[in-house]
Design a protein around this nucleic acid. Structure first.
Length: 436
DNA sequence: TCTGGGGTCCTAGGACCC
DNA sequence: TCTGGGGTCCTAGGACCC
């Protein structure tokens, strides 16, 4: 554990009051920002490939459109209520997220960006001030400067802040703020929250708990620690302590480096031939390499998987994966593409309709700690220079301005994105190609 | 026809070593 | 006849999150 965030780990001790800020229906709110006519209208945002619903405006929720619903199954509802449908546009959401986070940075002593639409804020220093008034100010500021609506929950630990936030959304809709500062407020939260709504308590754990007549968070904190330890491991124990107001989940002011990085996609069409699969595999490998370079790390294992469409029960199914070990850790695109294609050679079997493939890089180490192997013959300086140039060009002119020949041009496997909103960012002008 | 993608942490159990 | 035991490392799989 000790050295896991070699470059960026930074803990803050002594936090006794935490705020969780969460953007409401984030992706839907982002889309709405650029189309004011959609205020008060139902909106859904679809996953990659326009597959299923991953975000809904309140109006869409009210229509009974469930999270994760396959797009084709809610088609009638969409038609009937004229729901606005969007393909996901992560570049847009990412840039709006950055703007929200930058506003939040000015509102507290420290901030941990937890996900694209959530951040924990350290408000310990404001313990004796009016945190409720503070929260309202933060809300106003974000609304004014970015235009995205947010909810805020405050508690003594991250888990309690999460709980307060959820409560604010459900039971304090008009203000979207709940501050659990006093003991009675904490107890109130615990009583009002069912176990399945506790942060960290998923389906398995909540089933287990309800089977033992533990229904609310208030019930859960009463359960014997040994039992929790035995049935829910240290994870459950930590959860329980957090609910009691004892902080167990660390703060990371700077995001730690990823320990594994993956790029995996379903194809727009089914693919049968190995040559067709080489293109997406190479592209995913290239994307992993780019992400590695971005966080200044190298990999020494490349994992590749391919599989058929499990929803097509009439088809023969096949799932296979393999890990390729590299002699020397690298973040060179060509090397990682080569390893991934070698993996494809191993896992590929003819006679199947492939729907999805992915590339993962594991065993990630900082790029300044690479030990070269005895058999290493590549010109590292030259390769680093080329990768740097490649990243700069793609950064300036768009993601695939320079790419490798094996990634292909026609890209018939590429995602279906029928309803993608404008990006408001630079687009691809021309494609350069590198042979390897 | 059509069902997402990217992560973390923990544990059990096997391999291996002395 | 009789077949140890403790420690470490690694991996696969489970559970959870957004």
């Amino acid at each position: 554990m000790g050295n896991r965030h070699t470059h960026s780990h930074q803990s803050i001790g002594g936090i006794t009051m935490v705020a969780l800020v969460d953007c409401n229906n984030f992706y839907a709110s982002c889309e709405r920002l650029f189309q004011p006519a959609l205020q008060q209208k139902p909106i859904v945002v679809l996953s990659n490939n326009d597959g299923c619903v991953i975000a809904r405006s309140n109006e869409a929720k009210a229509l009974g459109i469930p999270m994760g619903a396959p797009a084709f199954m809610i088609e009638p509802l969409i038609k009937k209520h004229q729901v606005a449908v969007f393909s996901s546009n992560y570049i847009l959401y990412g840039s709006l997220s950055n703007r929200v986070m930058n506003v939040l940075r000015g509102c507290a002593a420290a901030i941990e960006v937890y996900s694209i639409d959530e951040a924990f804020l350290d408000v310990s220093g404001m313990k004796h001030h009016d945190l409720f008034a503070w929260a309202l100010q933060v809300q106003q500021k974000v609304t004014k400067e970015v235009g995205i609506p947010i909810s805020i929950g405050v508690g003594q630990t991250k888990t309690l802040a999460k709980m307060a936030n959820r409560y604010a959304k459900k039971e304090r809709k008009e203000v979207g703020v709940y501050v659990a500062q006093e003991e009675w407020q904490r107890l109130h939260l615990l009583q009002q929250t069912r176990v399945e709504d506790i942060w960290g308590c998923g389906r398995q754990y909540s089933n287990l708990l309800t089977q033992h007549n533990v229904f609310t968070a208030a019930d859960f904190v009463q359960v014997q620690e040994e039992w929790v330890r035995k049935k829910m491991t240290v994870v459950g124990l930590r959860m329980q302590k957090e609910l009691k107001g004892i902080s167990c989940i660390e703060y990371d002011a700077l995001p730690p480096n990823k320990k594994c990085i993956q790029t995996a996609r379903s194809f727009g069409t089914l693919l049968q031939h190995k040559n067709e699969l080489r293109e997406p595999i190479a592209s995913y490998a290239n994307s992993c390499a780019t992400k590695l370079r971005k966080q200044k790390t190298c990999t020494s294992s490349v994992y590749v998987f391919i599989h058929t469409n499990r929803h097509r029960t009439q088809d023969r199914q096949y799932f296979k994966s393999v890990t390729i070990s590299l002699d020397t850790p690298t973040n060179d695109s060509a090397a990682i593409i080569q390893a991934a294609l070698k993996g494809l050679d191993i896992v590929f079997r003819p006679g199947y309709q492939f729907k999805k493939a992915g590339v993962l890089v594991l065993d990630i180490t900082p790029d300044d700690q690479v030990q070269t192997s005895l058999f290493d013959t590549t010109d590292r300086v030259k390769s680093n220079g080329m990768m740097k140039a490649l990243d700069e060009v793609n950064q300036l002119f768009g993601k695939n301005t320079v790419q490798y020949a094996v990634q292909g041009f026609k890209k018939k496997w590429r995602l279906k994105q029928a309803k993608v909103s404008p990006c408001y960012t630079t687009n691809i002008h021309e494609v350069l190609t590198i042979q390897i």
